[in-house]
Simulated scan of single mutants.
Amino acid sequence: MTAHDYLSTGCLHGDMLLPDGRTGHDYCQSDMGAAGAKKPAQCKFCQAPCSCECHEEPLLGDARRLAQQARRQLGPVQMVAARLRALHEGRQQ
């Protein structure tokens, strides 16, 4: 497990053209940064992988988006279930 959800500054800028002619995504994916050698698509402090979809296979990116959407939609359902459980437990006491 990594320390955090890392998004490269390069990927944050996306398809914007940088002064050296690369896009932000190209910069993130390369092994050479502005200050020299770097690990592609990886946090320099904890090695967390860049979370940008430009690094994923298309189907993996789709699966990740669907999982995030399901988690967002499941949140309210879990809250209702917890309230119902609490009400039910209160009636049994």
Results as ranks from 00 to 15, higher is better:
E56Q: 08
C43A: 02
C50H: 03
H55N: 04
H55F: 03
P40I: 00
R64G: 08
E53M: 10
G61T: 03
F45N: 13
C43W: 03
L59F: 06
C54Y: 15
C43G: 03
A41W: 07
Q68G: 14
C50P: 00
K44M: 05
P40A: 00
L59I: 13
Q69H: 09
Q47S: 09
A63D: 04
L66C: 15
E56A: 12
R64S: 15
C43M: 02
A48C: 09
P49G: 04
L60C: 07
A41T: 07
S51A: 10
C46Q: 03
E56G: 04
S51W: 13
P40C: 00
S51E: 14
A63H: 06
E57K: 13
E53G: 14
E56M: 15
C43Q: 03
R65S: 12
L66W: 10
P58W: 02
K44Y: 11
C50M: 01
S51M: 10
Q47H: 14
L66N: 05
E56W: 07
A70L: 03
E56C: 06
C46G: 03
L60E: 13
S51G: 07
K44Q: 14
Q42F: 04
C50L: 01
F45D: 09
E56Y: 06
C46E: 03
C54D: 07
H55L: 04
Q68T: 12
F45M: 11
C54I: 15
A48N: 15
C52R: 13
R64N: 06
E57M: 13
E57A: 13
H55C: 03
E57I: 07
L66V: 13
P58F: 02
C52E: 05
C52M: 10
D62L: 13
C46M: 03
P49H: 02
C46Y: 08
G61R: 06
H55P: 05
K44A: 12
A48H: 10
L60W: 12
E57N: 11
E53Y: 11
K39D: 08
P49F: 01
P40L: 00
A48R: 10
P49T: 03
L59N: 06
Q69N: 06
P49Y: 00
Q47A: 08
A63Y: 05
A41M: 08
F45Q: 11
K39C: 12
F45C: 11
Q47L: 15
Q69V: 05
L66R: 08
A70K: 02
G61L: 10
A63L: 06
L66I: 10
C43N: 02
P58K: 01
A70I: 01
P58S: 00
E53K: 15
A63T: 05
C50D: 01
P40F: 00
Q42T: 07
S51Q: 09
C54G: 11
C43Y: 03
P49W: 01
C46I: 03
L66D: 11
C54W: 12
A63K: 04
R65G: 11
K44D: 09
Q69M: 09
A67M: 07
C50R: 00
K39T: 10
L60S: 11
K44V: 08
R65N: 05
